Simulated assay, not measured.
Amino acid sequence: MGCYHISPTDKGWELRKEGATRPSKTASERSELLDCIGNFMQNRAGTVKVHSEDGSVEQELRYPPARRFHDQASG
């Protein structure tokens, strides 16, 4: 299970696994990383902490997403 961060840099935005020396993905806009994060995390489990321009954590996404109660009940 990994923890990733979408953070601002001096060149745009990056997605970086906690403890990694290089980013997994970079983009000029945060929205570009948010658009592709679902595909990136498809075969991974963990959290993605989305930072704002000032560096504070704005939201935390969990992968795989929690299943809803009615999803668990059906079947």
Rank of each mutant, 00 (worst) to 15 (best):
T9N: 09
S52R: 12
Y4R: 04
E18F: 04
M41H: 05
E14A: 08
E58Y: 04
R67E: 11
V57M: 05
S56L: 12
N43V: 05
T26D: 00
D10N: 05
M41D: 03
P64E: 04
I6D: 01
V48I: 07
A20W: 01
G19L: 10
D54Q: 15
C3L: 12
S31C: 09
C36N: 10
Y4L: 05
D71K: 11
G38Q: 10
W13N: 04
A66W: 00
A45S: 15
G46C: 01
K17C: 05
P8Q: 06
E58R: 12
F40N: 03
K25C: 08
H51K: 13
R68E: 13
T9E: 07
D35T: 07
R62I: 11
Y63H: 03
K11F: 11
R68N: 10
T47D: 01
E29P: 00
G19I: 08
G19C: 11
K17N: 06
A45R: 13
F69R: 11
R68H: 11
R30I: 10
I37M: 08
F69T: 06
R44D: 01
L61E: 02
E32A: 14
N43A: 10
I37F: 10
A27N: 13
T9Y: 09
R22V: 06
H51I: 01
F40V: 10
D10F: 05
P64R: 03
R22Y: 02
R62K: 14
D71G: 07
C36L: 10
A20V: 04
R67H: 06
Q59L: 11
N43R: 15
D54P: 09
A27K: 14
C36D: 11
F69H: 08
T26P: 00
P64W: 01
